[in-house]
């Protein structure tokens, strides 16, 4: 078959963004971001195993403004991917397929991700003062 360079379906750019499509894309995007986070976790563990000097360097990177930005984004990605992943598992079992349910579970997921991220950072930053 001739493989002409025809545009591939679906043409995402012609659709109005909807919570269903945006959350699906975000699930994949957060998953990709978390893979980078997994690399960072392994590096952190290797630094800890290497000794105090390497660990201090790792903590300095994590404690910089860029480190905090990465950690904040990763924490949101983690909570979002976790909550939306549970939503997906419910779909896999056949629950929640009616459109109003899909929208409701979508907003619950976004709310849970935002709420848990804020909660984790409040508790984490409060703990910083205690050490």
């Amino acid at each position: 078959m001739a493989s002409a360079q025809r545009p591939l379906s679906p043409h995402l750019q012609v659709y109005k963004p909807q919570i269903t499509s945006v959350m699906s894309i975000a699930h994949r995007a957060t998953g990709v971001a978390l893979s980078a986070g997994a690399v960072a976790l392994v590096l952190w563990l290797l630094a800890l195993a290497s000794g105090p000097d390497a660990f201090e360097m790792a903590q300095a990177i994590a404690g910089s403004w860029f480190g905090y930005l990465c950690l904040f984004v990763w924490s949101f990605c983690l909570f979002y991917h976790l909550a939306n992943g549970i939503r997906h598992l419910a779909w896999d079992m056949g629950y929640g397929f009616e459109i109003p349910q899909v929208y409701a579970s979508g907003w619950v997921t976004v709310g849970a991700a935002v709420g848990l991220t804020i909660l984790a950072w409040i508790v984490g930053l409060m703990g910083l003062g205690g050490r």
Binding site: G85, L89, G124, L128, R131
Partner: peptide
């Protein structure tokens, strides 16, 4: 994915409680 549900919650709780930990604590 199912395995990651409890593990993620454990991990986040642990990292939050370890925030700012020195070498020895970590």
């Amino acid at each position: 994915a199912v395995a990651m549900i409890p593990l993620t919650l454990w991990f986040v709780a642990s990292m939050v409680s370890l925030a700012g930990a020195n070498f020895e604590t970590a």
